[in-house]
């Protein structure tokens, strides 16, 4: 940001450039910055009497004093981190296989196969999982049919099911950056790694991972953000026991009509997720601009 500022100070801003930037600036301002500022404003208001509000921190204090709120929040954050790690662990071999093992048509085909499920809306995909996993669903019926179990089994409404849904819906956002980055790793680096005496693990750890690091970090950021802010998957697959933080926000805004509390939750969600991403970048010693480029 600093460099852009100084560059602008030196060269006069051209009208053409400004006009070209107009849509993105408007979009950023109207749909991102303005609503967030309004939310911050609402979150800082507390009701003292009907239709009379004063500025204060009571909405934020309520978050920390009510165990249900911050427990839900903690649970959401931890589940999201676990989902991100699981997605990475599953996506890495897939990406490596597509990028390094396959050649020609098979490569494109498999990549498209990863993409195809995302042509269907998330809602429909999640209902698909419900058809498979519910008590009278495909898997339960099949297990009864082959005689493995006596009665119907309910697979839905557990943490494992939520995790499954979250990992499934995030997979693409990890596979795409990883595949394109691994594709750019020249085979001779891997061969040189083996040639100099490395085994599979050391080549992976000292050559493949450092090369893929920016993609790993950017994939993780995107998946983490999407998971943390996901609403559909936890509600549909987790049911009442999902205890997802976005559900709390929804409840405050829609059910209880407490916009002040809901806004405070929204602001908290944004700040904590930003903090976790910042921590992740620091820990992996990557810069945000490098990761996102």
């Amino acid at each position: 940001m600093k460099t852009i500022g100084t560059a602008n100070a030196r060269t006069p801003i051209k009208l053409g450039l400004l006009l070209l930037l107009c849509p993105i600036l408007l979009w950023l301002f109207l749909l991102v910055i303005l609503p967030q500022l309004t939310m911050l404003n609402i979150s800082l208001q507390e009701r003292v009497a009907p239709r009379i509000y004063e500025y204060g921190f009571s909405n934020f204090i309520a978050f920390f004093t009510e165990p249900l709120y911050w427990n839900t929040f903690l649970r959401t954050a931890i589940m999201s981190i676990i989902a991100t790690i699981l997605t990475l662990i599953i996506a890495f071999p897939i990406s490596y296989y597509i990028a390094k093992m396959l050649r020609g048509r098979a490569k494109g085909l498999l990549f498209v196969l990863c993409l195809i499920p995302f042509w269907v809306s998330e809602l429909v995909r999640t209902y698909g999982w419900m058809i498979l996993l519910r008590e009278s669903g495909v898997i339960s019926t099949f297990l009864q049919y082959i005689g493995l179990v006596d009665g119907p089994i309910e697979f839905l409404y557990t943490d494992a099911t939520i995790m499954l849904g979250l990992v499934y819906s995030s997979m693409l956002f990890m596979v795409v950056p990883l595949t394109s980055t691994l594709d750019s790793l020249d085979d001779s680096y891997i061969e040189a790694g083996y040639d100099l005496g490395g085994n599979g693990f050391s080549v992976f750890w000292h050559i493949v991972v450092p090369h893929a690091k920016p993609a790993i970090v950017s994939g993780c950021i995107v998946v983490f953000m999407l998971t943390l802010g996901n609403y559909l998957t936890p509600i549909l697959l987790g049911g009442k026991s999902s205890l997802w933080f976005t559900e709390q926000i929804f409840t405050q805004f829609i059910t209880r009509f407490n916009w002040q509390q809901g806004s405070a939750f929204g602001v908290l969600l944004l700040s904590i997720s930003s903090l976790i991403v910042w921590l992740g970048l620091k820990l992996s010693r990557q810069s945000f601009s490098k990761v996102m480029s």
Binding site: S188, A192, D195, H206, I207, H211
Partner: peptide, 27 residues
């Protein structure tokens, strides 16, 4: 390849870009 007493200098050298000179040699 990693068990053979031969080493190879690649056409485009394949020096590991994430390591400095010493780390490359020490690998």
């Amino acid at each position: 390849p990693n068990k053979r007493p031969v080493n190879m200098v690649f056409q485009h050298l394949a020096l590991f870009p994430n390591m400095n000179v010493s780390e490359n040699i020490a690998y």
